[in-house]
């Protein structure tokens, strides 16, 4: 049962990491990265590291997400509403 949960969590981690790098839309990529951060917090809880899980939830998902979204707004502001990509 635990093994199934671990495998599912690892699958979700890899998938969200992959999507945050490969999605054409940058806004969606940042949202996928925030999802990745929250899943990492779950992984830390599974590894018996509640300290890291707390920090990851507040920093990895919260602060980093705010920083990324803010930077995204600044980088896209000059070109009006046009979405662009790598």
């Amino acid at each position: 049962m635990n093994l199934a949960f671990d495998l599912l969590l690892i699958l979700a981690l890899s998938w969200s990491a992959w999507r945050s790098l490969a999605t054409p839309d940058l806004t969606r990529a940042v949202v996928m990265f925030i999802v990745f951060g929250l899943l990492m917090a779950l992984a830390w809880a599974r590894l018996g590291a509640p300290d890291i899980a707390l920090a990851e939830a507040a920093i990895g998902a919260g602060l980093t997400g705010a920083l990324l979204l803010d930077a995204l707004g600044a980088l896209q502001a000059r070109r009006g509403e046009k979405k662009e990509d790598a």
Binding site: P50, D51, L54, A55, A58, I59, G62, L63
Partner: peptide, 9 residues
């Protein structure tokens, strides 16, 4: 579990 890092965050 807890401490300065989490509280600061």
């Amino acid at each position: 579990p807890g401490g300065a890092f989490q509280a600061g965050a």
